[in-house]
Design a protein around this nucleic acid. Structure first.
Length: 586
RNA sequence: GCCCUCGUAGCUCAGCAGGAUAGAGCAGCCGCCUCCUAAGCGGCAGGUCGGACGUUCGAAUCGUCUCGAGGGCGCCA
């Protein structure tokens, strides 16, 4: 409807240009938008305001000319000029009604479109290090990324969801060493666990598995393990040096095969846990992409070679640097450390190069906001490689702060005292968690009120929207109990009976849905959808309270049932897009 | 110090490719169940859109400055 009106307006402008009233090359594209106030009709355009200069006329005068030049349309009942020169369009009742059969016919496809023309988009999100369970911060990235991906898919992009598994870095070695040390403790050794080691309970669990399956096969006495190792922080040493030495000792004592085994056991256990966690959260991926595979395939070396050939690498203090300042970064960055190890950044360059080589038209990374300083260097690397960095879009997600009883929940990753995503799901449920996580735009800090998320009242937006859906289902059940036909008539038949203001408001809102999905997808803003759903649910609840649906008048009842069926469809589609269930009873 | 994000009603937030009297939900006050789920609905009250200057027919929206909150500035990931 919106685009139809836009076409009418631009036709009128073109005609005025032909008549010489407007300077053709000066015409500005007007905005056609929904009016905020129904007194202003259904749609409005600022065509006259925007083109006063091109016409050298006052806005209202130009508006009159535009209105006179508008082609006829059966959908439009009235056109008015208002305010400083807005042109307001009032739709016919019939134009309102057509949305109902459209929704019923398109069913779960209503709101979907082919806007993306099948272009390939990759969405990479969560990608948390597999060194422990996901916490509530990851949860927001998971919910947000999943909805953005689903939205893009809904508007016709071919979406590839991907989790980048950091299975190659130093952190993984620290994890493996941590598991082994816990194993030694389980086997009866007494030792001082390193400050920098992973201390969560899950480390004990993995160690227990190792101990159960291999008894003392991996055991060495504590003295052998710690002999000659530089002191840890509590003993006045450096915790980094201490843990690195322990890793080397661990590799040395266990040998390649056994070390590899511990490493893999830890990695796989945690990865399985993460995968299971996300799946239960309704988040699934097309691909889990291994960082190690980039190392093993030589992709990282290839990327470094390309940068070297392009002349953007230099050596300094024994390390290899990338001259990212050539591309606007604040300082140059190390890609190979003086100890010969690749930095995380090196594999990230290779990874992003690989993404573009795979032929995605667009690549979206969802990162925690604390990584924002990282964006310029990755873009710099892509530009240096001769790739189009504008294909990469990094969406930064702020932290979620949990509140319980009005109090902020203290969380520190250091001590291992963080609320996991699993705990959150268990406490508030998947639906509430998914909804709350995407209620705010991503760059906004999120205050997550656990009590509200659990409350079964209208204060809770999740229940509010779901309840609207359940209520409709209840109405339909009532209808069949009363032996009323819930198989509605075809097309727009009987819909002329929908004349109440509440009905028109609901119809109008239903017709907005495709525009909302489109805007939410293109702007990567799921919150637009949650706001819309709340609004739609409100229209429905208001209507429900004001009018009886299952009336004796057959034609009116038929019309209302159709309207309510259409509403249910849109509620269901919208909830589905944000990964929230649409219950039939509550 | 430099960079990024955010300052809108008591609280949590929409609105921001400039547009018609700034919106919602909580919380507060007042009403509504002989009627399809009151997990609901209606009404009232509540704002110098952090501040200043500028751009223009018009600024919460754009620009500069300023104040305040958070985050980032490793041969960590």
């Amino acid at each position: 409807m919106k685009s139809q009106i836009a076409t009418l307006v631009s036709t009128a402008l073109e005609q005025l240009a032909q008549e010489g009233l407007l300077a053709a090359d000066d015409i500005k594209t007007p905005v056609v938008e929904r009016t905020r106030d129904s007194a202003h009709g259904d749609f409005a355009t600022n065509a006259a305001l925007v083109n006063t200069k091109a016409a050298r006329m006052k806005p209202r005068g130009l508006a009159e000319k535009i209105v006179a030049a508008l082609p006829e349309s059966p959908q439009i009942a009235k056109v008015e000029i208002a305010g400083p020169g807005f042109i307001n369009f009032h739709l016919t009742a019939d134009a309102y009604h057509t949305v109902v059969p459209q929704i019923i016919e398109q069913a779960h496809d209503y709101g979907r479109s082919a806007l993306g023309k099948g272009r390939k988009v990759q969405v990479e999100f969560v990608s948390a290090n597999p060194t422990g369970p996901l916490h509530v911060g990851h949860g927001r990235g998971a919910a947000y990324g999943a909805v953005v991906a689903d939205l893009l898919q809904a508007v016709g992009f071919e979406v590839h969801r991907e989790y980048y598994v950091n299975d190659a870095g130093r952190q993984m070695n620290i994890l493996a060493a941590s598991v082994w040390l816990r194993y030694l403790e389980l086997a009866g050794e007494e030792l001082a666990f390193p400050v920098n080691g992973y201390k969560g309970d899950y480390v004990w669990d993995i160690a227990a598995t190792l101990h159960r399956e291999h008894a003392d096969d991996y055991r060495f006495d504590a003295e052998t393990v710690f002999r000659g190792i530089p002191a840890d922080k509590p003993a006045g040493g450096d915790k980094e040096i201490h843990i690195d030495a322990l890793i080397e000792r661990c590799k040395h004592l266990l040998g390649d095969n056994r070390y590899r085994y511990v490493f893999e056991l830890a990695l796989n256990t945690i990865l399985d846990d993460i995968r299971d966690d996300l799946e239960k959260f309704g988040v699934v991926y097309e691909e889990w992409f291994s960082e190690r595979s980039l190392m093993e395939s030589g992709a990282v070396n290839k990327a470094i070679e390309r940068l070297r050939k392009a002349g953007y690498l230099y050596e300094d203090k024994g390390a290899l640097w990338f001259r990212s300042t050539d591309f606007g970064d604040e300082k140059d960055r190390v890609v190979v450390r003086d100890n010969g190890q690749m930095t995380y950044f090196a594999s990230d360059i290779a990874y992003h190069m690989d993404k573009l080589e795979r032929g995605f038209d667009r690549v979206i990374d969802v990162w925690g906001a604390d990584h924002h300083g990282y964006v310029p260097r990755v873009k710099a690397a892509l530009t240096a490689l001769g790739d189009d960095a504008s294909k990469l879009d990094v969406l930064l997600v702020q932290f979620a702060i949990l509140y319980r009883g009005g109090e902020k929940l203290a969380m520190s990753t250091r001590s291992g005292e963080f609320v996991t995503l699993r705990q959150l799901r268990k406490e508030v449920g998947r639906d509430a968690a998914r909804f709350f996580y995407v209620m705010r735009k991503c760059e906004q800090h999120l205050d997550f009120d656990l009590d509200l998320a659990k409350s079964q009242t209208s204060d809770n937006p999740v229940y509010y929207v779901q309840y609207a859906h359940a209520r409709i289902c209840a109405v339909l059940r009532q209808a069949s109990e009363k032996n009323m036909a819930i198989e509605p008539s075809q097309g727009t038949r009987n819909l002329e009976h929908l004349t109440e203001p509440h009905e028109l408001a609901l119809l109008n809102n239903l017709s907005r849905y495709p525009e909302i999905v489109e805007a939410a997808a293109l702007n990567e803003e799921p919150h637009q959808l949650t706001h819309y759903l709340r609004d739609l649910a409100n229209d429905f609840h208001t209507y429900y309270n004001a009018h009886q649906f299952l009336v004796d008048d057959d034609a009116l009842r038929d019309a209302r049932i159709k309207l309510v069926l259409a509403t249910r469809e849109v509620l269901r589609n919208g909830l589905n897009l944000i990964g929230v269930s649409a219950p039939e009873t509550m």
